[in-house]
Design a protein around this nucleic acid. Structure first.
Lengths: 135, 135
DNA sequence: TACTTTTATGTAGGTACCTTCTAAAAGTAA
DNA sequence: TTACTTTTAGAAGGTACCTACATAAAAGTA
């Protein structure tokens, strides 16, 4: 932990951490969490992990089009936010298991509700888009 | 409507539009919709409009930190996707009213469920972040 | 020695989001 | 005439996401 982090940590009282976030406020740090959970790949990682533990390469296969770099990046964001648990087995070649924490399960449910809705409603959305272009 | 759009439109049969989206697929156009709904300002616009019609400047005031450019941009995405209805009154200075379509109401509910969850859980998330940095 | 495997990291470069500034429109008020 | 109103567009420039490619480690096999 860097000195700057320690200073920042100690400057905040417990009550600061008990306050709910306010996403409408300009500088509320909860916006960072929103950004991670709703990021291009964050959504898909959460949904993919809902069906249980996955290895890194499993996720890469499952989530079409994600690059190695961004998958790692996204997993690290979600791990840092306490949504994803990372377990590295001390073997060669490396074997790393990713799974959702209890908090991650809750987040994944919310995100999946939106994703499912989009998938089901997509025909209507596409139709609306066409109508608008044609109109 | 441009010729290219007409050609694209006619190349698709009705059944194409009745297929549900698949967000895990690389090139499924539903991913664009997901991107709009979960974009940095898209989430906040949907939630803000849940309490009814807002003028452009109302939204700008309500959503902390959004720039004029991005608010317009986001509203146009959501309008194009059929989530937001835009009504311009023919007066000077301009008076434009934005509101959710029925489909937008549904999307907003899903998005708000996630946002509410983040705001409530934020103290725990922040604590998790700190633990990780300190660990 | 060369090659394999899996999970990362580093870098170079592109793209798209995003902010800021400027400007337009046509009325009203000073 | 000048300033001010509200909504939107355009341009310039910054930043962060994102892709692609190269590199690394570690221990086993051909």
């Amino acid at each position: 932990m860097a000195d700057a982090d320690i200073a920042e940590y100690q400057s905040k009282t417990l009550s600061n951490y008990l306050q709910a976030g306010n996403l409408m406020a300009v500088d509320c740090p909860s916006r960072e969490v929103l950004k991670h959970l709703t990021s291009r790949w964050g959504v898909l990682v959460l949904i993919a992990l809902q069906s249980g533990m996955h290895r890194y390469s499993d996720l890469r296969r499952k989530i079409g089009g994600v690059s190695e770099r961004m998958l790692i990046q996204t997993l690290q964001w979600l791990e840092q936010d306490g949504m994803v648990r990372r377990e590295a087995l001390p073997v060669v070649p490396p074997h790393v298991e990713y799974s959702l924490t209890p908090m991650g399960e809750e987040a994944a449910e919310k995100v999946r509700a939106l994703a499912d809705w989009i998938e089901i409603k997509f025909p209507y959305i596409a139709a609306a888009q066409m109508q608008r272009k044609a109109g």
